[in-house]
Design a protein around this nucleic acid. Structure first.
Lengths: 719, 719
DNA sequence: TTGTCTCCCTGGGGGAGACAA
DNA sequence: TTGTCTCCCCCAGGGAGACAA
């Protein structure tokens, strides 16, 4: 392209560009020049991307949000088929390290693209890695941008360069000449060189880019309103870029894959990367993406420190018109009117766009999104309140099960790396009220029934909530890690990160059974990171936010603080396509398999059998990949299935069961003769004798029985 | 674009286009016109795609080959990271019905795109659905294509239209005029209308497209060597298209996803589609795709009827130069020098490019691919031999496990829909020799050890080989299908097809164990489709191909007939990333878990223990996600692992073991005192007393023991 | 019959100062 | 100071027949 337009003037025009490389052999000098050029390129790229765009640098730690990535690809593709996506077993945010970062531009449109290579971070914690402070290039990098006028883009004449910009950014002209002029060569983001004639002429005199300019305009298909951007470093290297007023629309039919498959690609790609701990590539298109989906660790954590609550006032910036300098828009003001994960089914607890905003002016509301993410807003100072306890990111194992890309249904337990901020807020509750959960390992601890929880192994209490159903993990730093489990559930980690968790019943051979048990005990001893304190249960339902400015939420029923609904009202979770309808059939059929699947779920049943049957069913149903847990009411043919992940505690559950089985409240207030019990992997338990989170993790099936009948099968009835 | 160039001549030129719609209100007439236009468009699209390209029509049944789809996306994207892909549990070919088919073109390059919506067919069999015969449009559709000369594409002058083409394809000119001329309007694949001045002038007189032509050339960026194509139906509707000599290269940086993620997208998308039976979209780019990956059912089946063998001569067509008519190239001749699945690890048994070709001339070899698929070649008549039995596609359940998109490693058992042709050949063996496997449901049945196998439910025997390790499936037509399993292994199918299979050891409770068995028996009763016959095992190694012209293969070691290697030599299968290295640790640690995974594989170990240990290990290792099976030789410290999927029968296996353990043939001919035994999921120690396929599915570990020692632990020693 | 060349002639657009906001 | 206009002038390229393969 450039060569086409290389209609250079007569040879008397001196070419100024020429990099001005001094004849120094100093390696440092050369690499400095290179570094400067790289920095100029980066700044140009950012200027072309827009004032709101930022990208991390190599080595930075970031959070990758698959939801945001999908937002981008959805913005780029036309939704083809309305086939519901499965729920992938991918955390809503993934801590990564930036392995490489290539700032590029699309050849045809000059649309900016950041090609980012990430590697999932093994370790949730580690030092608050700071981005290597970039050398203060700002002092020696000059730039200007100009929004093109109709004259600038007309066929008659060139670009009128503001005097100040020309003086600052272009090499000086020899003003003693009759018609001061020089030939400039500017590189665009592709490295293509564009020759421009820079001339000082007209009456009154002004700076113009004449020859070459119209070729540039034609090639880049610039129109009035677009912005051209010039950057120049100390070494006189000149760069040119563009930012369009109207972003190029997507080539609808030009996609290689269907939008469906692309979403699969995003999710399966992320899944594979975290499963194997391997690199993965992400393309970030700032012009297309509704929001950044790769957030620097520090930015995220800073947001996590703030105690967002209803009614808070905040400001947010968006791209808008700006002057010759690349600047940010004025800020738009808004108020938080809701905090809630936007897709509880797929991304429970996610902070992505979890804040519902009401914008101050109606016009703003038309431009600004309804929902924003915490890290993209600036809370007005007066409202800022930090959380009390901030253990930012604790050392935890990956919470998802790498053998199961698809989750059967929502209900992903809240845990560790998966939901940092959410965790923090929850943690805050406990901290504030019971002083638990300090240090690197912490969990959401509950003591719904103190008697029972006291009986559980210490390690269990501490780690269980984070590893799904009663798993715990040792040897985290080892690729060949082995996860062991009591309740006779076990997990194997496959090198490269693939692991699965499977529960098994005790083998008939006492030898092998005892061997396994012994080993489990041995493993437990190696856990030195436990920190368990007794806690009380009162805190469970208290609304976390204690900000003085807090108002009762308008959209009642949800008071979500970073994804945790602290009120008792629950939206109905839609059932995605992967729920087992036929599963009731397996009820009597299949020998029990006690599988522990993080983020996966549970089989559940109705029951109308004798006590013998109850006993028997302890190991009679397959517990893999179910989102729902069966509830069987004694004497009733039709059982029900419920998704435990929808509930935040026993109270919620009981209310629901009371409603479902039409106890009219008598199940809740215990006035009925019926009680709820459940089976876990081992044998019968009474309802409510362990913390809720743990209950969620271990429950296999629930039974609603008359007390007398229930008692008769309860070998060891706690409570 | 078109409007830009719409420099129409003076008003005296009559516009001929105008669709010539007669003033008939007849709906039939209108829809006929529409149908004709659609057909002309289709023909134009095909002509632009190239002479070798074909696409199915809506309603057609086709096989979709994920491998081919990946070939296409790989051809379009630059491989970014060298991270190995996981093995997805997706069949290598997927029978689909074409739900919709949009023939499009890329806006910038006019590259042809077929946007195909497929839905996986539930039913492997069903009627030999014939494509609705298209109306014989050919009689009324006129077309010509011209390879553009330098003059045609130069800035001076227009397109020189061959006289015959102009007469046939353009509306007739009024030759009584001084300068006979008319204005034509031609639609391209986007529906954009291009005006052309058709004039008959010069000395001598000739047909030219003058005004408008150069705009067309510029807009489409045509160069000499490219081809322009005109089509016209009866209704005078004129269409124009192009086919480039040099296909546009891929926009490397313009991809939305990394090539990794795109491959994930292809595979996860396919997986999801077959899991849920839902629609999925595929974009086929004939200019980019190295080969068609959507093959009409009939074309595939026709190929499947042929008994391909080494040395066969065949012809194949490729795109090449052609005349004014869109025609196929001359055929290239070649010889089959190998038949073998190209990626046995990922796509075992796949016929995709399974034929290794030697091309007759060296120049051809430079153009033609090394490997071709059976359906894309035409076997020279003299070599054609049909297979004996052709049960083309039997009604079988989907063989893959829908809960496991990723398979850990190759070794996918041959089964049903997954490998139609391969199956056929395998089936053929059994059919020909034992008369088994008729009807809709069939399995490879064996009764090597009657005593042992007699204990298994019939259903087990019958279905096992096709569903991995000892699974069986009922209710195939039901989305809510339930897979049941004895050996205390069980599978749940989740509606939409998600299911998993897990094995468990017998629970400590005798009650539950017996119940499970009972139920399994009960379930068995509902299986009315079983057809079990005794077969002998001799047939196992017989080479299928009995073609008289068959020659011994040059690249010895593989004589694959549709994916089945009928010779005994096996290439080493590379171990992909998902193999468990740390698994030896679990050996002593974890209670046995007998997992049945279709396409997944087996754990294996070395052994140097006492008989007690042997006994113990019957249920001591996790059998998930292994490609290899352990072989333990008594008294030898170092055991070995072998991939059973590499072998086609016991003979192969024994040869290999004989070699590995240096028996120098004495293991094969039984002259040594050593024997091979194995353990299955029920802790029974057995000899090779069941069909090979079943053996592959149920074997957990193999032991090579001296006869006497072996007998001592052999409760029931068959042989 | 059709590919290439050359001649003719027109108009789009590059290059300059004039003028005005 | 800079956006727009207009004038000037040139040459790219379209349109035609000549010529030759």
């Amino acid at each position: 392209m450039a060569s086409n337009s290389n209609r250079q003037g007569s040879s008397m025009h001196k070419v100024v560009e020429a990099e001005m490389k001094k004849p120094c052999n100093d390696q440092d000098q050369i690499s400095k020049l290179k570094a400067e050029e790289d920095e100029v390129y980066r700044q140009l790229w950012l200027a072309c991307a827009g004032p709101m765009v930022n990208v991390p640098r190599v080595g930075d730690r970031v959070f990758y949000f698959p939801q945001g990535h999908i937002e981008q690809v959805e913005a780029c593709t036309s939704k083809d088929i309305d086939v519901p996506m499965p729920i992938y077993n991918v955390p809503y945010k993934i801590l990564c390290c930036v392995v490489s970062m290539q700032l590029q531009a699309e050849p045809n449109t000059d649309e900016v693209i950041a090609h980012i290579t990430l590697v999932p971070e093994k370790d949730g914690e580690s030092s608050q890695h700071q981005t290597a402070p970039s050398i203060a290039w700002e002092s020696c990098i000059r730039s200007f941008s100009k929004k093109l006028t109709p004259s600038d883009t007309s066929t008659h004449g060139g670009l009128s360069v503001p005097r100040k910009c020309a003086n600052e950014c272009f090499p000086p002209l020899d003003m003693f000449q009759n018609l001061p002029a020089q030939d400039l060569i500017a590189k665009d983001l592709h490295g293509t060189e564009w020759p421009f004639r820079h001339i000082y002429r007209g009456q009154p005199k002004r700076h113009l880019l004449s020859s070459g300019w119209s070729s540039f305009v034609n090639s880049k298909k610039l129109v009035a309103g677009d912005t051209c951007i010039f950057f120049r470093g100390k070494t006189s290297k000149l760069f040119v870029g563009i930012r369009r007023a109207i972003k190029p629309e997507n080539n609808t039919s030009a996609s290689l894959l269907s939008s469906q498959s692309i979403q699969h690609g995003v999710l399966a790609g992320a899944f594979h990367a975290i499963s194997t701990g391997s690199l993965f590539n992400v393309y970030y298109y700032p012009w297309k993406s509704p929001a950044e989906f790769i957030i620097p660790y520090n930015q995220y954590m800073k947001a996590a420190e703030i105690d967002y609550s209803f009614g808070m006032r905040f400001k947010m910036q968006f791209e808008a018109t700006e002057g010759f300098r690349v600047e940010r828009s004025p800020k738009f003001g808004g108020t938080i009117i809701g905090i809630k994960d936007i897709d509880h089914t797929r991304w429970p607890g996610s902070e992505w766009r979890c804040i519902k905003a009401k914008w101050d002016s109606a016009e703003d509301a038309a431009i600004c999104p309804n929902r924003v993410s915490p890290w993209s807003i600036q809370v007005v100072e007066i409202y800022k309140r930090k959380r009390k306890s901030i253990p930012p990111d604790s050392k935890k194992a990956r919470p998802f099960n790498p053998l199961f890309p698809f989750s059967v249904k929502g209900g992903k337990p809240d845990n560790g790396l998966v939901s940092g901020i959410t965790k923090n807020s929850v943690e805050h509750i406990h901290h504030g009220l019971s002083g638990v959960l300090q240090g690197q390992e912490f969990g959401i601890v509950d003591a719904y029934n103190q008697r029972t929880s006291a009986r559980l192994p210490v390690s269990h209490l501490s780690l269980k909530p984070f590893y799904g159903r009663g798993e715990k993990q040792i040897g985290l730093d080892n690729q060949h890690q082995l996860q062991i489990h009591d309740h006779h559930e076990s997990t194997i980690s496959i090198p490269g990160g693939v692991s699965t968790t499977l529960g098994i019943a005790i083998s008939g051979s006492p030898t092998s059974a005892s061997r396994a048990t012994n080993y489990a005990n041995g493993a437990k001893k190696s856990l030195s990171i436990l920190d368990v304190n007794p806690i009380t249960s009162k805190s469970q339902k208290k609304c976390i936010s204690e900000a003085p400015h807090e108002v009762q939420p308008v959209d009642s029923g949800t008071c979500m603080i970073f994804g945790v609904n602290v009120l008792g009202n629950h939206p109905k979770v839609p059932s995605p396509q992967f729920v087992v309808d036929g599963e009731l059939n397996c009820f009597d059929v299949v020998p029990t398999l006690l599988a522990s699947q993080e983020g996966v779920s549970k089989t559940i049943h109705v029951q109308e059998r004798s006590n013998d049957n109850l006993q028997e069913e302890l190991c009679s149903c397959l517990h893999i990949n179910r989102s729902c847990t069966k509830v069987i009411k004694y004497g009733t043919a039709l059982g029900r299935s419920i998704d435990l992940s929808r509930f935040n505690g026993y109270g919620d559950l009981m209310s629901e069961l009371d409603k479902i089985f039409e106890f009219n409240g008598s199940l809740i207030d215990m006035s009925s003769n019926w009680r709820l019990s459940y089976t876990d992997g081992e044998r019968d338990r009474m309802f409510g004798d362990c913390p809720w989170k743990e209950f969620q993790a271990i429950v296999k099936k629930m039974f609603i029985c008359p007390k007398d009948i229930d008692d008769s099968v309860q070998a060891r009835a706690p409570v």
